[in-house]
């Protein structure tokens, strides 16, 4: 007598099989197609690969709806690098918008960089970020010269209360909107101590304008 056996799965087994398939698909698509990232931090890892910074740790993460509706701006760091990156959610999952690495291996009191994003001809946020190595510095004055109808100066003050700490180092991140980046020239960061005495002054050279 021919025995015909056909297995009938229960809900539990069917679900287990489906979850396994989904997990395998997730792994394969993430690793080989490099898309379908479920978490934004994975897109930051892609920025790390593009800029070859190595593994970085999170300092802060902000929601930035002014650049993209699902945009997130990350400040990450490791011993050698401070990186500002932006990611957003797209049809492909989380993808990177841009990453600006700052080489902090050179000795110095302050390391700083800036980044701005243009979307559809409209300027959006302007970011200034960096690392403060001198323990005496208590406040940063960031200065631009705005070219336009008569040059004007613009000051932004960043207090140590706003700064973040990670791995024993201090980091800062400032942002403001309505930035016409092309007109902002010669950014300068001046570090002052509690009394207001100037300790260090650097020009922000590492800057990137991203046009989307």
């Amino acid at each position: 007598m021919k025995r015909k056996e056909k297995r009938l799965p229960s809900r539990r087994r069917r679900t287990a099989r489906r979850v396994l398939v989904a997990a395998a698909a997730l792994f394969l698509v993430n690793r080989i197609f490099l898309v379908g990232l479920l978490f934004p931090i994975q897109a930051v890892r892609r920025c790390e690969e593009r800029e070859d910074t190595g593994r970085t740790n999170l300092v802060c993460r902000n929601w930035a709806p002014e650049i993209y509706k699902t945009g997130l701006v990350y400040l990450t760091e490791n011993e050698n690098v401070t990186m500002l990156s932006a990611v957003r959610l797209s049809l492909y999952g989380w993808i990177e918008v841009y990453g600006v690495p700052l080489d902090c291996t050179v000795e110095g009191p302050i390391h700083g960089g800036w980044w701005t994003l243009y979307r559809k001809e409209e300027p959006s946020q302007f970011y200034v970020f960096g690392r403060i190595d001198d323990p005496d510095i208590d406040r940063l004055n960031i200065l631009w010269t705005i070219e336009g109808d008569g040059d004007s100066d613009m000051w932004v003050v960043s207090d140590s209360g706003e700064w973040m700490e990670r791995d024993g180092r201090r980091y800062f991140l400032c942002s403001f909107g309505n930035a016409n980046a092309a007109a902002y020239k010669f950014p300068l960061v001046v570090g002052c101590d509690e009394a207001g005495k100037e300790i260090a002054r650097i020009g922000l050279e590492h800057g990137v304008v991203t046009v989307s």
Partner: peptide
């Protein structure tokens, strides 16, 4: 969704 994304990003 992953399969669609993979196809789009082929």
């Amino acid at each position: 969704v992953l399969c669609v994304q993979a196809l789009l990003g082929i």
